[in-house]
Design a protein around this nucleic acid. Structure first.
Length: 568
RNA sequence: CGGGCUGUGGCGCAGCUUGGUUAGCGCGCUUGACUGGGGGUCAAGAGGUCCCGGGUUCGAAUCCCGGCAGCCCGACCA
């Protein structure tokens, strides 16, 4: 490709709305342009990288026995009514966009479980046709509350999503492992250091699921990592260990003391009430009134210095809940005697520590101190309800864990029968002649997001630096001083033709601009190999070779074999 | 959804406080000359609903009211 003909404009300055390196560089280098908030155009250079990413995905998934298809982006709304997920539209969990057309009401597909389930269900009637794994690379639409960071969080995104269909749970788990391993190979080929972590399944559903996290300073997620044993989990799913049995209350411990604490409903305010400066938030019991996923009222206890981590599907009390449960006084909640009021008390294992607690008195404007577990309050169920922080103990091996900031590059789920049990046509005849329904898995990978992730991980202060295999071109050829030295233009043209004839993808900067501009643009675009041909080089019969990533330079015989020139 | 900031040629910004000629500057773009190994120099040009609507005023980019959009922080997130 001759650069004089390529649709690209490089910018010396990045737009003011670009915050992170990948966004700034992809815009400055002319790979992408913003059309609206969270909506981007892929210009020719950006599209070429996107195609390379897709090529790697296709190769690995096809090799793993998956088959590509293309599902519609426009979904009849009835499909979503059938799965029950239509009611999630407009919620934070499923920010879908709908459109009204002559054919009825449609959804701009935010994900494709419903569509693929009815599609495959219509084609598969027998266990003999299973297992089956299909995938597509398709545009998805999400009405993001807050698009940001260029391609990292958008409202329109390109995603690769795969779906597996198996006869039962065991077979589904085996398929899941096959795709999981293929995903790891895909990321390795893209030069990304990815960590699979245990995660929450959110609106997709299912039991076992993993996120594929790329550690990055621009990440919006954190995962907990144990370097000792390899435990890794999203903070939303991570638990901590290192706790013993709850301590029995000392028989000679002083009784609880009541304190009048008007206008002090929060942890920090209560800490400030006590003159004793040795009292900290860790001495308080944080008591959260919630409704669990089965609808029962639950009181969650955890140390006051900890952020809560509630299981998915649990929600905080609203005003109506408080009105219905007078034993829980908003701002002054305590665990004492809640069982008698029909409240289940669950507690984080951190509450097993010996000693008394400061907690709400279940009476407005009152707190108590010296509350003892087992004497003053009882815990019905123990669990892990505090968000893990660096320095906590690993739930598997007990060693210290740390938190890693990261970008979610992919998310895989063992769905089981969540969709096949509700969508029509998802049954088949099993080997024993009985009717069975699919055991499904689903596998999503953010293709356009990966473009930004790779750019984020592979750049320097001068521009992008694509890994081989992802770069928009393999070789960047620049001629210098052609305006006054036609022999350079002739030699460069000839070299370009030879490289193209050899099947090498080469971007040829044949513009009549100053050397500084050509060098700066070459650095910005980030093609791995740069060839420079100038008047001195032509006179000596050499072309200069330089690596974008290492800066290594050498000379090659201008008329030598193309392999030697390109420096394979 | 809460808090903050910002909307002025393609991009980055100044002007607004204190209303008043023809709305400036850098980059980019066009033409010409020079230059020719790290965004070079000079000259001449093109390009603007100053986000939108209303109001105040003889007069509004500037002041007032109301919208809309964008970005950042938080909440949330497949």
């Amino acid at each position: 490709m001759r650069m004089s003909r390529l649709l690209v404009r490089t910018l010396r300055e990045a737009p003011a709305d670009a915050e992170v390196a990948s966004h700034q560089l992809l815009v400055r280098a002319g790979f992408i342009r913003r059309l609206a908030s969270g909506v981007y155009t892929f210009l020719p250079l950006g599209l070429r990288v996107l195609h390379n990413i897709e090529g790697i995905i296709r190769e690995e998934l096809d090799a793993a026995g998956c088959q590509e298809l293309l599902l519609p982006a426009l979904h009849p709304r009835e499909l979503w009514e059938q799965s029950g997920r239509a009611e999630l539209f407009g919620s934070d969990a499923l920010p879908a966009m709908t459109v009204e057309g002559r054919g009825g009401s449609f959804v701009l597909g935010p994900t494709h479980e419903e569509v693929v389930t009815v599609t495959v269900g219509a084609e598969v009637d027998s266990y003999r046709q299973l297992p089956l794994t299909v995938y597509q690379i398709q545009v998805k639409f999400r009405d993001e509350a807050r698009p940001r960071f260029g391609l990292l969080r958008t409202r329109e995104l390109i995603m690769c999503d795969g779906y597996s269909f198996d006869v039962d749970k065991d077979a589904m788990q085996a398929t899941y492992k096959v795709v999981y391993d293929a995903y790891l190979r895909i990321f390795a080929r893209m030069g990304l250091d990815v960590s699979p972590v245990e995660a929450e399944s959110g609106a997709i559903g299912g039991d076992v699921n993993h996120e594929f996290m790329v550690p990055s300073v621009v990440g919006e997620d954190h995962f907990v990592r144990c370097v000792a044993c390899g435990y890794a989990a999203n903070v939303e799913a991570a638990t901590r260990g290192g706790f013993g049995e709850p301590a029995a209350p000392a028989s000679d411990a002083p009784a609880v003391v009541d304190h009048h604490t008007p206008e002090r409903p929060g942890i920090d305010q209560v800490v400030g009430f006590f003159d004793d400066t040795s009292i900290t938030a860790a001495d308080l019991l944080k008591s959260l009134a919630v409704v669990d996923d089965t609808g029962r009222p639950v009181l969650v206890l955890l140390p006051g210095d900890r952020e809560a981590r509630l299981p998915s599907g649990w929600r905080m009390f609203d005003d109506a809940d408080f009105a219905a449960h007078p034993s829980l006084v908003k701002g002054y909640i305590g665990p004492m005697g809640q069982q008698a009021a029909g409240i289940t008390v669950v507690a984080d294992l951190g509450v097993t520590r010996p000693g008394g607690w400061i907690t709400g008195a279940n009476q407005a404007d009152h707190h108590i101190s010296g509350a003892l577990l087992g004497r003053d309050f009882i815990v019905d169920e123990w669990g892990s309800y505090a968000q893990v922080v660096t320095g906590d103990s690993c739930p598997r091996c007990g060693k210290d864990v740390d938190l890693v900031r990261s970008v979610e590059a992919a998310h895989t789920f063992q769905l089981g029968t969540k969709y096949s049990s509700v969508m029509t046509g998802s049954s088949f005849v099993a080997e024993d002649g009985s009717e069975a329904i699919f055991s499904m898995g689903c596998y999503g990978m953010g293709v356009s997001r990966l473009l930004a992730v790779v750019a984020e991980e592979h750049h320097d202060d001068k521009g992008l630096a694509w890994p081989t295999g992802l770069a928009p071109f393999a070789v960047h050829l620049a001629s210098l001083g052609t305006g006054r030295a036609p022999e350079v233009a002739e030699a460069a043209d000839a070299l370009y033709e030879r490289l193209v004839a050899a099947g090498i993808e080469v971007l040829y900067d044949d513009r009549d601009v100053s050397p500084g501009v050509k060098f700066a643009d070459a650095d910005l675009l980030g093609i791995p190999v740069r060839l420079v041909l100038g008047a001195k080089g032509v006179a000596r019969g050499i072309v200069e070779w330089r690596s974008r990533t290492t800066g290594e330079e050498r000379e090659a015989d201008l008329n030598g074999p193309v392999e030697a020139v390109v420096g394979a």
